[in-house]
């Protein structure tokens, strides 16, 4: 299929067109389109005949970027390509999403509009500095029980010094710290703030859905022992600052449902 991408660049946009497999994601298409060698891959998957036809980019002059370009060079963050690292968030047709988890065929036909996530400062194009997200996150542990049916503990043939030879099963928390919930939150990103180059001033201080979801998970794991989680939730910029819009739950790519977890904190459950 031919993917058409319109990528934010300062005050202007870059239009990209690329041949991509039917199952390709937005991230796949963007990576092919911005790679010189990507034309080969695109042709191989799409049956194109002529060298160079797989990629076509044209530059529109943006007044805000102050950069010069030799090639189609688009800055975007990405790493794992399977929804594990949480790095490749962007506004896809105006909605916060991980590009690696957004198949092209699930989008309306036509041009896919890509813009940087609005909760953070833009470095260039789609790349943002995710400092505000990580600043908001508490230092809670990242492991939890797998929550599968009752399974025996796993034997450890190589226990570390002092560790038992059988251990409870463990897995990572579902939250991949991608920041989509911050980008979707109407408290953190008031209407009209999207597309701004500057990190918007929040209407009021709010630690954000990711941190509160982590606090709820910490309480689930540690119970009343988790003083820091209770403090985080009870602070003026904690649960009380949430407007219950539930946009966080709608955009979460891993089903964490921060909105529901915040409600549980509110009810003290």
């Amino acid at each position: 299929m031919i993917a058409k991408l319109s990528v934010a660049r300062g005050d202007g946009r870059v239009e990209l067109e690329v041949e991509a497999p039917e199952w390709a994601t937005v991230l796949d298409a963007l990576e092919i389109a911005t790679s010189k060698k990507g034309t080969t891959e695109a042709r191989r998957h799409g049956g194109r005949e002529k060298e160079g036809e797989g990629q076509k980019g044209k530059e529109e002059k943006g007044t805000g970027s102050g950069r010069e370009w030799n090639d189609v060079d688009v800055l975007y963050r990405h790493s794992c390509h399977h929804g594990s690292c949480g790095v490749c968030g962007a506004l896809v047709n105006g909605r916060p999403a991980l590009m690696c988890r957004t198949p092209l065929r699930e989008l309306p036909s036509g041009v896919v509009r890509l813009d940087p996530l609005p909760y953070a400062t833009v470095i260039a194009d789609l790349a943002v500095e995710p400092g505000p997200l990580f600043d908001s996150l508490p230092g809670f542990g990242y492991l939890r029980p797998p929550a599968r049916e009752e399974l025996p503990p796993v034997p450890d043939p190589a226990p570390l010094p002092g560790a038992p030879a059988e251990r409870p099963r463990e897995r990572f928390e579902d939250c991949i710290e991608c920041g989509l919930c911050l980008a979707a939150c109407p408290v953190l990103v008031p209407e009209g703030a999207e597309g701004s180059d500057e990190a918007p001033d929040a209407r009021r201080p709010f630690v954000g859905p990711a941190a509160l979801a982590m606090a709820r998970r910490e309480l689930a794991k540690k119970g009343p022992l988790s003083g820091p989680a209770r403090t985080l939730a009870a602070a003026p910029d904690g649960v009380a600052a949430c407007d219950r819009a539930f946009e966080c739950s709608r955009v979460c790519p891993r089903g964490v449902a921060p909105g529901r977890l915040i409600e549980e904190l509110r009810r003290g459950t």
Partner: peptide
């Protein structure tokens, strides 16, 4: 330190 410290307190 934690991976979370990679981006803490950073602005471009």
């Amino acid at each position: 330190p934690s991976w979370r410290d990679l981006y803490r307190g950073r602005a471009p």
